[in-house]
Design a protein around this nucleic acid. Structure first.
Lengths: 106, 106
DNA sequence: GACTTGTTTCGATGTTTGTCGATACAGTCG
DNA sequence: CGACTGTATCGACAAACATCGAAACAAGTC
């Protein structure tokens, strides 16, 4: 982010991922999934903690899935979700601003 | 994010910051500012690269400012913007998922 | 003070997003 | 097969957002 001025296409793709994170419910969902034992959680684990309806949770999970932040799979009756660490790592790396480029140290 | 299931208030605050990043123009603005020499840039430097009107750029800068991602100051005729590294570092740290919590390694 | 340039705010408009209830689909168990 | 549980999709609606042009504001110059 500091070295390259970030081309239009790259910015468009990254903004899609950040957009998926730009909702408190989706952030909490992601956190619930990541902190769940085994690194995965079924939808039934994810509905209780929220005040919104089940279809709404399902919608948010779809947004996370289409953004490439989580994977999912049906196993029998339940659908399980897990975090895709590479995607988060990509965003995390982007936001690491070398101290040398901060204004105060320039 | 992995250890704590991320409380409602924390999620709300973080989602506000991610929302500011959830737009390709704002990502490119941030990148332009961060990569500009001296770590800061005046608005006049930030208009050229985009196809949108100048008020729209000003609006996006306001969003970044209110999200606490950049600081700004008027110096004579021009207004300068710079990145606030602590804010980005906070988000970056949040997205660092320890490998141990990935599904495959659980 | 009047003019000019750089920047922000305002009001309006079309689009996107979050949410819901109703419904459809998938799998399990009698 | 039929009933039941878990999950996803659909259609609708209200709220939020990106964008623009016009207008206001700020600082410098004549």
């Amino acid at each position: 982010m500091v070295r390259e001025p970030l081309g239009e296409e790259a910015a468009a793709e990254l903004s899609r991922m950040f957009k998926a994170l730009a909702d408190p419910i989706r952030l909490r969902l992601l956190s619930l999934i990541a902190s769940h034992e085994g690194g995965e959680a079924c939808v039934c684990d994810l509905i209780g903690p929220f005040d919104v309806s089940q279809p709404t949770i399902s919608h948010h999970l779809k947004v996370l899935r289409e953004a490439g932040l989580v994977g999912s799979e049906r196993r029998g009756t339940w659908v399980y979700y897990w975090v895709l660490p590479e995607a988060l790592a990509k965003l995390s790396a982007l936001l690491e601003i070398p101290a040398a480029s901060a204004k105060a140290l320039a």
